[in-house]
Every structure is written in structure tokens, then in C-alpha cells.
């Protein structure tokens, strides 16, 4: 459905995306995961026909994004990051305007359907300027699905929403994903895990990994980390040499006076954790808390970047079959 080959974009001398190659299938929800400035928005803007790439090609439903830009734009629904809407129009008038531009048949009926879908029927006559952040986002989604596009491109669809609205929008995307191919970007790992069939991890304009969320998690679960909060006059750093000697412990790091992070070997015995606790007590400290340090997106990046650095310039073929062809 979406195909990109060696997609590259320079802003002046700055390289925003660097030879991206990927493909998505029909009816798939693909997540584009990466920190701010990774190149997600740039890639999406190229795919929507907003701007041409500096090098490389991309196709949507077999139409080239530059050569057949209008055909691509007819087939894509787009929700830009922080969507900008005309505040001086009502929801209905805005959707009517966008629908007319896109030549939607039976427009009135379709607008009514879409409003129902995004749960905005009672705000149809409200001015967009008077809507809350979450409602604006839903107007944006309504606009994106109005013409029943084959491909839906959503740039940070849940950014700036409160938790309840976020759940709502995710639910909506999941529903929409049953009929459309969806590509969405996010910097929230759990969101990608929750919604996506497949995740592309992107950093500094390059794809670092491409996998299902489950496999990605498995790969990253290699090392387990435990976070300890301890009390004692000597400070947490005093425990470092003691805990390092325990079997199954790879590394101990004192975060501050009270907190330690302990990295366990992937094959550490289940008894390692009780042993840690006992060692803390035996050393004359008090143990206040012990929990699994969850892997944040940042950790995943650090790990992937470390892996990349370790594997040198050669492609890490097993992990990223399509991403690093040019590395």
C-alpha cells in the first residue's frame, strides 16, 4: 500500500531523513516510532504529497508521490501534527469545504456519518475556535477519513490530549484501522505497542529497527533492570561493590544517594531478586522499594544505537532486514 525506497530529504544542508526504505501492506496499522526530530513528520509530508523528497521514491497504492501527486492525494487521508483548522468556520462548514475539495459524493450524508463516527454530532454547528483540544483532534480525524481514503496518515494523533481523550482517539484509530491502511507516528512506546501491527523505529532520519511490537519487546527484554530505593548512612554508592558480586548481576549503578539501578543477566535465576534484597539488609541498609525498571523508549534507542555502533558500519541484517541497506 505504502512503499518507500531510499527516501531522502535535505533541508538546506541538514539531512532530515536518510535513505528510508519500507513497505506496508493493505489493512495494516504501522507505527512510526521515534523521538522529536527523528524525521517522522518529514517522511509523512512526503507520503502525503505535501513536499517532494530530495532523493528516492515513494508510492501510495502504486501511484508515485511526485509524478502522480494528485492521485496520491486523492487516496490519502492526513492528520498533521497539531492540526491547524479554520477557527472561524463551523465543524459542518469545514467538513463540507474539505469534502467539496475532495469531491466526496453524497457529501451531506457522509458528513453526518463521519460526525457520528467521531462523536461530534452535537457540535456540528459549533465554531471550531470554541472546541477543546480533543474535539479539534476529532475534527481533524473526521476530515482525514471523510473521503474514505485507502491510506490514512496520522502524525502524532494523540499528542496534547488528556488520558481519557487519548484512549478515545486510540479506540477510533483501531476502528478505522479495520478498513484502512494506517500509518501513524508517535513517540510513546506503549501507544505503538497498543495500536500497531508493526513498528518502525526511526532515529536521526534512519530506520533502526522494524518489527512487530511483540518481537521488539522480546528483543529488548534481553537485559532486565531492577530499581532499588535504600536507606543507610553510607549512601547507596556503598552498596555498589557488594551487589556487583552477586551471581546474575551484570552491572550496578548508583543513581543518587538513595537509588540504585541493577542490570540483571537475561538468564538470571528467579532467586536473584530475593538475593539482592537480602544483600542490602545484610550490609546494614534498609530496603524501601524494589521494582522493575521499565524499558522506556529512550532505553530502546540507547540500546539500538549501542547495537548499531557495536556492529560497525556493516548492516545488522538479522535485526533490520530493510532498514540499513545503505549503512
Amino acid at each position: 500500500m505504502i512503499r518507500a525506497r531510499d527516501l531522502t530529504k535535505y533541508y538546506g544542508p541538514r539531512l532530515a531523513i536518510d535513505h528510508l526504505t519500507f513497505e506496508t501492506r493493505k489493512g495494516e496499522i504501522v507505527g512510526f516510532l521515534g523521538p522529536n526530530g527523528a524525521g517522522k513528520t518529514t517522511t509523512m509530508r512526503i507520503l502525503t504529497g505535501y513536499m517532494p523528497p530530495s532523493e528516492g521514491d515513494a508510492w501510495i497504492a502504486d501511484y508515485h508521490v511526485v509524478d502522480d501527486s494528485l492521485e496520491v492525494r486523492r487516496r490519502v487521508g492526513y492528520l498533521p501534527e497539531n492540526i491547524a483548522l479554520y477557527d472561524d468556520m463551523t465543524v459542518w462548514d469545514y467538513l463540507a469545504f474539505m469534502g467539496q475539495l475532495r469531491g466526496v459524493p453524497n457529501l451531506e450524508q457522509r458528513i453526518a456519518e463521519v460526525l457520528e463516527r467521531v462523536n461530534l454530532v452535537d457540535r456540528a454547528e459549533s465554531f471550531i475556535g470554541s472546541l477543546s483540544r480533543g474535539m479539534r483532534q476529532r475534527v481533524g480525524l473526521a476530515q482525514a477519513i471523510l473521503h474514505q481514503p485507502q491510506v490514512l496518515i496520522l502524525d502524532e494523533p494523540t499528542i496534547g490530549l488528556d488520558p481519557a481523550q487519548r484512549v478515545e482517539v486510540r479506540e477510533l484509530i483501531r476502528e478505522i484501522g479495520q478498513e484502512h491502511t494506517v500509518m501513524l507516528s508517535t513517540h510513546i512506546l506503549s501507544e505503538a505497542q497498543d495500536l500497531c501491527d508493526r513498528v518502525l523505529i526511526i532515529n536521526q532520519g534512519r530506520i533502526l529497527a522494524e518489527d512487530t511490537p511483540e518481537e521488539l519487546e522480546l528483543r529488548l527484554r534481553g537485559a532486565q533492570r531492577v530499581r532499588l530505593q535504600v536507606g543507610g548512612e553510607a549512601g547507596a554508592a556503598g552498596l555498589q561493590p557488594i551487589l556487583s558480586r552477586l551471581p546474575g548481576v551484570l552491572r550496578v549503578e548508583a543513581v543518587d544517594d538513595q537509588h540504585l539501578e541493577v542490570e540483571l543477566a537475561p538468564d538470571a535465576a528467579p532467586s536473584t531478586r530475593p538475593a539482592l534484597a537480602q544483600a542490602v539488609l545484610d550490609a546494614g541498609y534498609t530496603l524501601h522499594e524494589m521494582c522493575t525498571a521499565s524499558l522506556s523508549l529512550e532505553d530502546i534507542f540507547l540500546q539500538l544505537i549501542r547495537e548499531e555502533a557495536a556492529s560497525g558500519p556493516a548492516p545488522d541484517a538479522a535485526a533490520t532486514p530493510t532498514a540499513n541497506e545503505e549503512a
Partner: peptide, 14 residues
């Protein structure tokens, strides 16, 4: 300035 141009330029309009 408002950013609304982005959606116009991604609509099927020359």
C-alpha cells in the same frame, strides 16, 4: 501562519 496551508496542499488541488 495558521498552518492550515498544509491540508490545502495535501488536498487534490493543483
Amino acid at each position: 501562519a495558521a498552518g492550515t496551508l498544509e491540508l490545502l496542499l495535501t488536498a487534490p488541488v493543483r
